[in-house]
Write a protein that binds this DNA or RNA. Structure first.
Length: 267
DNA sequence: CGGCATGTTGCGCA
DNA sequence: TTGCGCAACATGCC
């Protein structure tokens, strides 16, 4: 599920379902998701409250309550929010529920997460993980000069740099792979070989295009992801742009597909 | 059975 | 102090 486009779709869902809604019941028993706090704090913070806003930065969601409380949700690898009836049975891997009333209608918003790499936190202050995030490519403009400086600083591969959440919030393995292909830049290129302002601009633009492409795709399909990607997971197949056989390499421990024919690597 | 997976974190070591 | 590589987390799926 979750990189920036999926989390953005989730934000829009939660906004529709929750803003203005009053919480009639809330529960999670999962100490892993709420770590390091007790899962009991979840119900305590939510019961009787009204949601005022649903915000997103990168892969993090923040739900703001009418008393100043905040709920932070990170979907990890397999997390997701769904809306069901109050009486719906507990789904396999359901980890939390928020029952609400909105405009006279009662229903339940449930969080499911098989692997439990996600987080579900309540508090009154923004958490450190939220504050440390870099610019969100969907919400903010990119300061090309600043990004250029970040690139110049390291010999780290450019793909690892753009996946650093302090550099661009929300860019994960799929977006980085797709965005660099769109930018025609080899993901292995050391940052300090991409010194031209044009390089920084091309990368930011490629990532934005990858985000827009996936968001547009989500509007049409619910499970069309695999078919909408150009190179991710397609090593061995022909490049959709130039026909060269797509290569595979591991960067920062993550599998990366790229085209040796049209993604340039500067010496 | 083995290998891989959209994310993050912590540890050992240079 | 910084950074890098890698295992770990928990589970599904091919």
């Amino acid at each position: 599920m979750p990189e920036l486009p999926d989390v953005e779709i989730t934000r829009r869902d939660l906004k529709r379902w929750l803003v203005g809604a009053i919480v009639t019941a809330a529960d999670t028993r999962d100490a892993r998701l709420s770590r390091p706090a007790s899962p009991r704090a979840f119900a305590r913070a939510l019961l009787g409250r009204t949601f005022e806003r649903v915000e997103r930065r990168g892969k993090w969601l923040r739900l703001d309550l009418d008393d100043g409380g905040k709920v932070f949700s990170h979907l990890g690898m397999t997390g997701g929010w769904v809306r069901v009836t109050i009486a719906a049975p507990v789904a396999r891997f359901e980890r939390a529920r928020i029952d609400v009333v909105l405009r006279g209608r009662a229903y339940s918003v449930r969080y499911t997460d098989a692997r439990r790499f996600g987080r579900l936190l309540v508090g009154r202050e923004d958490i450190a993980d939220w504050n440390a995030l870099g610019p969100d490519l969907l919400a903010e403009g990119v300061d090309v000069g600043r990004f250029s400086d970040v690139l110049a600083k390291g010999r780290r591969a450019v793909k690892e740099i753009v996946m650093d959440q302090r550099v661009f919030a929300g860019v994960g393995n799929i977006l980085a792979t797709e965005g660099l292909w769109m930018a025609r830049i080899d993901p292995r290129s050391p940052g300090n070989t991409l010194l031209l302002p044009a390089d920084a601009r091309a990368i930011a633009r490629g990532l934005r295009r990858a985000i827009a492409h996936e968001l547009a795709d989500r509007k049409q399909y619910t499970d069309g992801r695999a078919d909408s990607l150009f190179v991710y997971g397609r090593a061995g197949q022909p490049c959709p742009r130039c026909g060269t056989r797509l290569s595979k390499v591991v960067l920062g421990g993550r599998t990366t597909a790229f085209c040796g024919g049209c993604q340039v690597r500067r010496p």
